[in-house]
Design a protein around this nucleic acid. Structure first.
Lengths: 222, 222
DNA sequence: CATTGCATTCTTGCATCCAATAATGCTAGG
DNA sequence: CCTAGCATTATTGGATGCAAGAATGCAATG
């Protein structure tokens, strides 16, 4: 249930609170690419000093969500179509690897649970936040079966990086009608017992969604 | 030539200096896994206050080189054989992807340069630092041909994570006699014009080196 | 009217200070 | 001699202050 970090749990530290606050804003698209963030401003909004905000900046910068420029503050990272495509490609190979391991570990109970997640995903296709969360959770659930923690973490980071874009697409473009059968195919590949096939299907799945999402962006902004 | 960040360039900021100082120590294995780092101690060593050191801790934590525990400081990250294997696997798919793109972009001049790097790599096989740097640079040079910046960055991060382990192996185990032909095979695959083959060869190459390095660790510590 | 140069204001980066939490060592009791 | 509990010390997390650099606005000049 924990996604990237503790962004919705009660953050114990001020830095954690600042991190979660900013992460949510970025993911929801409330902070636009290129926007400059002033440490003191953020600090006032959430009732703390600039120090923990600076540290949150540092963490978000390391994750690629912000760009920290010397003496010139933090700006929200924005990505070109090429960069977005690169993220999708990295996701495809990482989730492909996770899928490969998952296919070796998966049990009947796991499949049962995944079917349930998929069912809920489909039912949430009219609520953006709901759908995005369930979609992320569905992919995370598969990756979790791999048992590889770092892999899961890296993949979730990429999902967060792409979330504003996917949200934009979800809200403005045609709803993902085909999502159900696409993801059903993932489950089929998962139980096929063929690791190569499982990996290949996941790679194709991730890449197949990319062009529509990216192309829509370029059309939407011109 | 710039590796991960500005760890040997003249760091402009105090935070950058602290980051580079710690990064080098970790990479060289001067800080052992599990060792606790005290912010003030580090700060005194390099003549600054704790604040920039804390921020460097935050960055290194985000990169997975340190583990920051609430109220209990930073400890140097250490990895189990399983975790190391996971890193190698992630490296294999990421470098495989980079190789795929590189094979589409590579020119005759690039191959010339890579051959030169490989030649220098082989000549440096008796100096640990030299060999490690050249080996990293050889892989980075191939990945750079992909033109994918994020991919290159992620791969270099993994190289840094694995560096202490590879260093340990290099110093205590048999020298990598086969490295020359292994890497030569990479160049052959690169010019083969077959992206699938190029990717597969790189994946195999990265994975093939893993068991020896990891196994040696478990033997060396028991 | 546009543009350059300068002065003012704002923001960042770092040091220092203080409170809260964790680690350490000591003492007393078994 | 070992252990539990407490007092002391060390260390972290966060707030504040201050200097250096960047952004802004204004005025003078072409």
């Amino acid at each position: 249930m924990a996604l990237i970090s503790d962004q919705d749990e009660a953050a114990v530290s001020a830095e954690g609170e600042a991190y979660g606050y900013l992460l949510n804003k970025i993911r929801r698209g409330e902070l636009k690419a290129g926007e400059r963030l002033k440490a003191e401003e953020i600090a006032n909004e959430i009732g703390m000093s600039r120090m923990p905000v600076r540290e949150a900046f540092r963490r978000l910068d390391a994750e690629g969500l912000l760009t920290l420029r010397p003496n010139r503050g933090a700006i929200v990272a924005g990505f070109s179509p090429d960069q977005l495509m690169e993220f999708f490609e990295i996701r495809s190979v990482l989730e492909g690897l996770a899928m490969r391991h998952a296919s070796a570990n998966v049990t009947g109970a796991d499949i049962e649970e995944l079917r349930d997640l998929l069912f809920r995903l489909d039912r949430g296709k009219n609520d953006c936040d709901l759908w995005l969360n369930r979609h992320r959770e569905f992919h995370a659930a598969i990756c979790r079966l791999s048992g590889k923690k770092r892999l899961l973490k890296d993949i979730e980071k990429l999902h967060v990086l792409l979330e504003p874009q996917i949200r934009f697409w979800f809200m403005h473009a045609a709803k993902p009608i085909s999502a159900l059968q696409e993801h059903q195919a993932l489950l089929d590949a998962l139980v096929s017992g063929n690791p190569d096939k499982a990996e290949a299907v996941m790679r194709d799945h991730v890449l197949s969604t990319a062009p529509a999402i990216i192309q829509f962006m370029t059309e939407g902004t011109k």
